[in-house]
Structure formats: structure tokens, C-alpha cells
């Protein structure tokens, strides 16, 4: 790369021919979103690192020498002199196939069905996944658990078409604090969380933990184990803090 700017330097580039300011090295997708452009994406979240798994956020980038290429925008670094074209015929065509592939993985997901309808994805050409767990292997749950929560409870196992999101040995993982962050970020809502009888269960990972009861309201609010985990992690805090749900602390 003959880029002269250091990472983080302000650069000018274009979107559909119109000039914009950006920061060299920033995620192109995030920059596009910031400027109000709509680019669909399922595996990206600003809180975690870019991964490039779902291939939905395709754009066409024209470099300084006029060469065109199709690329995902989430992991493409904003750089000087490029022109980013959205919704070109190639982008539309490939995005449609990508969505068709994703829909075959999660045929029941309302989110995916809506997206597919919106992008005129033809139906019935691909055999949907027999086991259809509705997981599209976007890896968001794993990244949130590792990079944000720090619990490292979710593993990616195997490779190729055998790849799965799971816990080691498909067993209940004592590292899981049942915080529910993975449930929250999952784009196809295939992880699932249930609270009943003072317990919270993360359905997909088979993790059940008793909930702590708020001393103020008497209502269960979060897993006891999670509170202990953070008490230990943060250290030095008055442990009384954790006896109440956040609004009453």
C-alpha cells in the first residue's frame, strides 16, 4: 500500500463521487453509517472489532488508479482518494446471493426474511439447512463475550462447513456469567434467554444461574454469579453496591 498517511490522520475520500472527510484506517462501514448511508450488515457492531463474516456490507471501491473492486466495508479502512460506490449492479447482485445463502442458514429468522424480501432475494433455489439452528455464524456473540464482557465463554469450533458456535465440548461452561450480551447482539435471535423461578438460562449454551434479588425492590435482576464476577473484577468496591439493582444504588 502506497498510503502516505499515518493511521488516524484525516483524509478526504468520496462516496458516490461526493467528497467527504474521514479518518485513515477507520471502518468504512461505520463511516458510511455516520454519514447516514444505509448499508446492510449483520456481523458488525461498533463495540467489537470488525470480522467480515456475513459479507452483506458489500460496496464497490474505486482506487486512485481507477480500479474497481467489490469489498465488504466493515473491515475496509477509510483511505484518501478512494471513491465508494453503493448499490452498483454488481453490489446488488452479489448481495442478493449472499442474502440467499444466509437465509438458507436461518430460514425461520424474521429479521433475515425481512431483509431478503427487501432485497428481492429469489426463494426456493437453495436447499435450506436441515438442522437450521438459525445461527449464521456471524461470530458477534463470541466477540462480545471475549472483547467486551471478558468472559470468554463461547468458542468457535471446527472449520469449513462443520464450523459451529458452541461452548467447549458442547457443555455448560463455568466461564459463562449469563450476562445475556450474546443474546442481545445476536442478529437472528437464535441464542435465547429465559428467566423463571429465580433463575436465568441462556438457552443455546445451556447455562443456568440463580438470579440475585434486589434488596430495594425484592425483584430478581441479574445472576448472582455475574455480580460476584464483577465484584472480583472491579475489586475494592463496597460489596453492598451489588445488592441492589443499578437504579437504586
Amino acid at each position: 500500500m502506497s498510503e502516505q498517511h499515518p493511521f488516524g490522520a484525516p483524509v478526504t475520500f468520496r462516496i458516490g463521487g461526493r467528497p467527504y472527510e474521514g479518518t485513515y484506517g477507520d471502518s468504512l462501514l461505520e463511516t458510511l453509517h455516520r454519514y447516514g448511508y444505509e448499508v446492510p450488515s449483520l456481523c458488525h457492531h461498533e463495540a467489537v472489532s470488525a470480522y467480515g463474516a456475513c459479507r452483506l456490507c458489500l460496496v464497490e471501491v474505486v482506487d486512485k488508479r481507477g480500479r474497481h473492486k467489490i469489498t465488504t466495508s466493515c473491515n475496509f479502512p477509510v483511505q484518501a482518494g478512494i471513491d465508494v460506490l453503493l448499490d452498483t449492479p454488481d453490489v446488488v447482485r452479489h448481495r442478493r446471493v449472499v442474502l440467499e445463502l444466509l437465509l438458507a442458514m436461518a430460514p425461520r429468522s424474521p429479521e433475515l426474511r425481512a431483509l431478503a424480501a427487501e432485497h428481492d432475494v429469489p426463494g426456493g433455489r437453495l436447499e435450506p439447512d436441515e438442522s437450521a439452528e438459525d445461527c449464521i455464524l456471524c461470530g458477534l456473540c463470541e466477540r462480545v463475550c471475549r472483547e467486551v464482557v471478558g468472559a470468554n465463554a463461547i468458542a468457535m469450533s471446527a472449520r469449513g462447513t462443520a464450523k459451529r458456535m458452541t461452548t467447549p465440548y458442547d457443555a455448560e461452561n463455568p466461564a459463562c456469567i449469563a450476562c445475556g450480551a450474546c443474546v442481545y447482539v445476536c442478529p437472528t435471535r437464535c441464542i435465547g434467554l429465559e428467566e423463571a423461578d429465580g433463575k436465568r438460562t441462556i438457552l443455546r449454551w445451556g447455562r443456568t444461574l440463580p438470579l440475585a434479588v434486589c434488596q430495594q425492590t425484592g425483584r430478581a435482576f441479574t445472576p448472582q454469579f455475574l455480580l460476584e464476577h464483577y465484584a472480583k473484577k472491579l475489586g475494592g468496591l463496597d460489596e453492598k453496591v451489588f445488592r441492589k439493582a443499578p437504579p437504586y444504588r
Binding site: G52, L101, L102, R159, G160, T161, K163
Partner: peptide, 11 residues
């Protein structure tokens, strides 16, 4: 032999 990371290759 695909690593299985991206949808186009794996699926």
C-alpha cells in the same frame, strides 16, 4: 478446508 469464517466461501 475452508476456514469457515465468511459466508460466501463456507455457505
Amino acid at each position: 478446508e475452508s476456514c469457515g469464517k465468511c459466508v460466501t466461501c463456507r455457505e
